[in-house]
């Protein structure tokens, strides 16, 4: 009974994680410019792979695996915003334009 419950939970985590990864991939193709694509990649993508790591932890069920998977999860969640931030800053400093739907750009007004 417990085994079935754990299998169900693991399956749910896997599927939701894969779904978020797919959504992030679709977003990376549909969204119009670098900055909006970063939203999809850094949020949905991170949550996707993080959920699948949690699924491994749940499936293995022993503490050392759980600890490592949790460490990996925290690592991804902490590094994803940093790399997104660095990329956004680099792209903006080098003058890659925002999409023409964009309504305002305070950073540009600030820099010039």
């Amino acid at each position: 009974m417990i085994a079935v419950l754990i299998a169900l939970l693991t399956a749910l985590l896997i599927l939701v994680g894969a779904g978020f990864a797919l959504v992030a991939a679709i977003g990376i193709n549909r969204l119009p410019d670098v900055y909006t694509r970063m939203h999809a990649a850094s949020k949905a993508g991170t949550v996707g792979s993080g959920l699948m790591l949690l699924a491994v932890a749940l499936h293995a069920g022993d503490l050392s695996t759980l600890a490592r998977a949790l460490a990996g999860f925290f690592f991804f969640v902490l590094t994803a915003p940093i790399s997104a931030h660095l990329l956004a800053m680099a792209a903006h400093k080098m003058g890659y334009p925002l999409h023409e739907q964009s309504v305002r750009d305070d950073l540009n007004d600030h820099q010039n």
Binding site: A41, T46, G48, S83
Partner: peptide, 29 residues
């Protein structure tokens, strides 16, 4: 670069799935 960053995330998902499939928890490392 954003897409490559995203690819790493997806591959990590693959590795997690294979860890579950084969039962080798070393894949987490």
């Amino acid at each position: 670069v954003v897409a490559l960053d995203m690819l790493v995330g997806i591959v990590i998902g693959f590795i997690a799935l294979i860890a579950i499939r084969t039962g080798f928890t070393l894949y987490i490392d």
